[in-house]
Design a protein around this nucleic acid. Structure first.
Lengths: 168, 168
DNA sequence: CGCCAGTTGAGACTGAGTCGCAATCGCATA
DNA sequence: TATGCGATTGCGACTCAGTCTCAACTGGCG
């Protein structure tokens, strides 16, 4: 995917509100669209630093805000602390499976869930603007490792193992 | 609902791992089950303080961890920062509609969504341990207020208004 | 009753994110 | 190409939620 499309969106977004496409914003944008699907703010900082581009932390966050606001980047609360960001392709949307072991993030999209959501909203007269849907657990790759380790563990918390426990 | 049941669960949980039911833990438990469905850590701190029970912040968090671990309280990332906690009734589970305007949290449960989730997990060989599903937007009560205000706003962000935008 | 592992409170600490401000830059215009 | 000025930047101080350390203090088993 070429970032041209997104660059234009960003450019227009800035223009529309009299903001400037500075070299810092541009560098951040490029880094972001160079490869990475998911990333954290500080990750970007480090990456840019190693490329000799010095951008202050404040600017990273400020620019990320703009990108989120312009709709080409999404902000997600995935881990235990802090945000993660992800590129958004226009009109597309997905939710997340997050592995507690390796941190892997798997994206999924289930239209039936989406439409059920709409029904729920209607039921409550709720106008949904965004949503976040995440399942946490163990991914396919980590399962063998974890279940074998489990044998030695005394009592690591919840009694029932396979149920989807209410975390939120 | 009487907290007896939950108290016993908690007691057993502590016992099982050689922990003690101190007066602080007890006070926190009581406060929590006195009334409140959703709350934040600092909220509890304040509430207990006004009742002349002094519990340090550290202890609040430590005890909350125990309660979460024992399964009678859930930890949720609802707002923009920090956690919220909520009482869990055994076996019950619900997800959240969160109003961006007034902060109201509406609980909902949609079995069809739950089972679709299971299907998604199967598809990816993912072992789900918990999940979090939240829709953010405007609740019924706030909608009139917001839409009328909207008229005066120039360009507050996203072009399309009613779509469910990908936030996560 | 005495012991001691478990627990507490105070406050220092951390990490993510924000803010204020002086110096600097983009860019529209001349 | 030079000018002007609002937008932008980096720095460092700050906030806020949550964690950690450690000496003093229990709960409750024996």
């Amino acid at each position: 995917m070429k970032p041209h499309r997104e660059l234009n969106i960003f450019r227009k977004y800035l223009e529309k509100r009299g903001l400037k496409l500075t070299s810092e914003r541009r560098a951040l944008f490029d880094e972001l669209f160079a490869r990475h699907e998911h990333f954290e703010a500080d990750e970007l900082l480090v990456r840019l630093r190693t490329k000799h581009k010095k951008i202050s932390r404040a600017t990273i966050y400020r620019t990320l805000d703009l990108l989120v606001d312009s709709g080409i980047v999404g902000r997600v609360r995935i881990g235990e602390s802090g945000y993660r960001y992800e590129r958004l392709r226009a009109g597309e949307h997905h939710d997340h499976l997050i592995c507690n072991e390796c941190g892997r993030v798997i994206e999924f999209f289930e239209p039936a869930i989406e439409s059920l959501q709409d029904q729920v909203c209607e039921r409550y007269g709720f106008l949904a603007l965004s949503h976040s849907h995440q399942l946490r657990g163990i991914c396919r790759q980590c399962r063998p490792r974890v279940t074998s380790r489990e044998a030695g563990v005394a009592a690591s918390g919840s009694p029932g193992k396979l149920r989807i426990l209410p975390t939120a």
